[in-house]
Structure formats: structure tokens, C-alpha cells
């Protein structure tokens, strides 16, 4: 059975596997699907954050829109009692186990959503323009290190801003093709000279 296991585990399929896109001089825009990782939806009361931080092994920020990102782990505060935790696949089981140990002292809900969404990295001077083709947010007002759930045209996304010209978005699997096609369609505007 263990042979079988290795065969299967290597055969995963994601909607945007290996997708990459660049457009415009410079280039203005580079997009790539982000690698797989472990994802958890954490729900708990704010008073339990110290405990949760311990279990996750990294600071979990208390305010909506805040994101803590260090090395390979990221914690996003999306709602008053909602966080999205991203970590390397290899830490999935240890994180789950550490949270499970705490459930007596600090009630929470930790749900593995590793396969629920896919990530897209968007960078370049045109990154904000392309997102604003369908996202109503003022992206200059979103601070570096900020995050939020929002809308991109007809899809809900979670948007992170790791750098001034670097965004990462998370979109549930079945909307990923749409979001990718939308962004690359908008990105092709950089392939033109107007006037």
C-alpha cells in the first residue's frame, strides 16, 4: 500500500498548475500560480489569540486587515473572529495537532482548507491596474502587509499585499480559471500602444 500512496500523492491536480503570464514592457505585469501549501481557517475569540499564536508558531494579528508574514508562514485576519493561516505543507499535521491539544482551554474551530483555494502572485508596476479592472478597492490605501476579502469582477477573492507592487490573491478552486482569465485578459492591455 505504501507504494500506492506515493504514486497518488505525487498526482495532484490544480486548476492553475504551472500557469504563468507576463505582459508589457519591463514587464509591466507578471502573474504566476502560487505553489501548494497548507491552509487553515481558524475561528476563535480574540482572547484566545495568544494560545493560537503558540499553536501556529507565529504571531496571529488581532485586527481585520492585518497580516503577519514571516519566512514561510502567514496569518491573515479577515474578520473579527476569523483568520486564514498559510504554512508549508510539511507542517500541516503538526499545526493541526498543536491546535487540537488546546481545544479544551481555548475553544476554536480549525478547519483544514488546504485544497479549497489556489493562490496567484501578481507583481509589477501594472499589478494594481490589472486588479482594479475588477476590484473596487483603492489599492493605494491598502498598506503593504495588509489583506482583505473583496470582489474581483464576479469572483470573491482574498487579497494580500506583500509588497508595494506585489499582490497575492487566494481564490476558491472553481473560480480560479475565471479569475486567471479575467486578469490575463486585462493584462493584455499592456501589450498595446495606445494613441
Amino acid at each position: 500500500m505504501s507504494d500506492e500512496l506515493s504514486i497518488i500523492v505525487s498526482e495532484q491536480s490544480n486548476p492553475l498548475d504551472g500557469a504563468a503570464f507576463a505582459a508589457g514592457p519591463g514587464p509591466m505585469l507578471v502573474m504566476a500560480s502560487a505553489g501548494d501549501c497548507a491552509r487553515f481557517s481558524l475561528r476563535t475569540a480574540k482572547k484566545n489569540l495568544a494560545k493560537a499564536t503558540e499553536a501556529f508558531g507565529q504571531v496571529i494579528p488581532p485586527q481585520i486587515g492585518e497580516m503577519s508574514s514571516r519566512a514561510v508562514k502567514t496569518a491573515l485576519c479577515l474578520g473579527p473572529d476569523e483568520w486564514l493561516l498559510l504554512a508549508p505543507e510539511s507542517e500541516r499535521e503538526s499545526i493541526t495537532a498543536r491546535f487540537a491539544k488546546q481545544s479544551e482551554q481555548a475553544t476554536h474551530s480549525l478547519v483544514d482548507v488546504s485544497h479549497r483555494s489556489v493562490g496567484i502572485d501578481i507583481s509589477g508596476p501594472g499589478a494594481a491596474l490589472v486588479l482594479n479592472a475588477g476590484c473596487p478597492l483603492d489599492l493605494t490605501a491598502l498598506p503593504v502587509g495588509g489583506c482583505t476579502r473583496t470582489i474581483l469582477d464576479k469572483a470573491e477573492i482574498i487579497l494580500m499585499k506583500p509588497g508595494k507592487e506585489h499582490y497575492r490573491l487566494e481564490v476558491v478552486r472553481s473560480f480560479a480559471d475565471f479569475v486567471w482569465n479575467f486578469l490575463s485578459s486585462a493584462g493584455r492591455e499592456f501589450e498595446t500602444e495606445s494613441g
Binding site: S109, V111, S117
Partner: peptide, 9 residues
Amino acid sequence: LWLTSITEQ
């Protein structure tokens, strides 16, 4: 208690 959508998980 909390609710989490896992449709696509």
C-alpha cells in the same frame, strides 16, 4: 460554534 465552507476542499 463556527461554520466553515468546505465545498471546494
